[in-house]
């Protein structure tokens, strides 16, 4: 499961529409997996403008397990969305894996997400019509270039890693909240991403389950060196983070 292994081979197997020369191959990772300079993000809201981020500067080293902490509406999700290339910055520079993402097209950003970034959502966001195993398989199927048996084997291995080896045929509706989030973690990790972004992963879970999820993320970070950035407004879960940044009204107030 080392992200530095089969990476080049995987890239070569990708379908033509996935090959984008602007994305550097895995294995040449810089020290900082994310570098943000003077990042602002404004949202128009009727006749006014909401300043969600007001000049963020931060570097996130590879292999981090970082927590972004702040109250609701502080800009945590916006920050994660921009790092995860699902949202655009208004101004500033965002480099992910040494790649300036503000200059990439939608297609290139999608490729970057598919191959380098994993997502874990507060509300799990599993595809309801797919079983747990199929949900985990889905990103691999989007990548293409693997046989069905390869895809299945890899997804099964991940599901077993998150402790759901015997739930692979269950649909999301048949799983508990904690189990769903475990499936989501397996799905986020199945493509061997360098970076996993988790937006309030424990917000919809009871504290015991939430802790088990964070322990799982910690374990994955330790074992595979995958960078995890998770947002939370719950001070109880901070002990799982190796570093913490605090954000308030769109500005960093602590950490870097």
């Amino acid at each position: 499961m080392n992200s530095g292994n089969a990476v080049n081979g995987e890239f070569a197997r990708q379908e033509p529409w996935m090959r984008e020369p602007t994305i550097p191959p895995k294995g040449n990772a810089p020290m900082n997996i994310v570098e943000i300079r003077n990042l602002t993000k404004n949202y128009p809201l009727g006749n006014t403008t909401v300043h969600a981020l007001r000049g963020i500067d931060m570097d996130i080293p590879k292999g981090s397990l970082m927590s972004v902490v702040g109250p609701s509406g502080s800009g945590k999700t916006t920050l994660l969305n921009i790092i995860g290339c699902v949202d655009n910055a208004t101004t500033g520079s965002v480099k992910v894996h040494d790649q300036e993402v503000t200059a990439l097209s939608d297609r290139q950003l999608t490729n970057l997400r598919l191959n380098r970034i994993g997502f874990i959502f507060q509300t799990f966001n599993l595809v309801p019509v797919l079983t747990a195993l199929e949900n985990v398989e889905f990103p691999l199927l989007l990548q293409g270039g693997r046989s069905t048996s390869e895809v299945r084997a890899k997804a099964r291995k991940l599901l077993a890693e998150v402790g759901l080896g015997d739930h692979e045929k269950h649909k999301p509706a048949e799983l508990s909240g904690g189990q769903r989030q475990r499936v989501a973690i397996a799905r986020a990790l199945v493509t061997d991403p360098d970076l996993v972004l988790a937006d309030e992963p424990t917000a919809n879970l009871d504290s015991e389950t939430g802790e088990s999820i964070l322990q799982l993320m910690q374990k994955m970070n330790d074992e595979f060196g995958t960078t995890f950035i998770f947002s939370t407004h719950d001070a109880q879960v901070l002990r799982y983070a190796k570093s913490v940044v605090r954000i308030h009204d769109g500005r960093l107030v602590e950490g870097s």
């Binding site: 997400r113 598919l114 966001n125 595809v127």
Partner: peptide, 12 residues
């Protein structure tokens, strides 16, 4: 769900 699929890497 479309947002999720796009986040996971599904092209437009």
């Amino acid at each position: 769900e479309i947002g999720t699929l796009r986040s996971l890497g599904m092209q437009a």
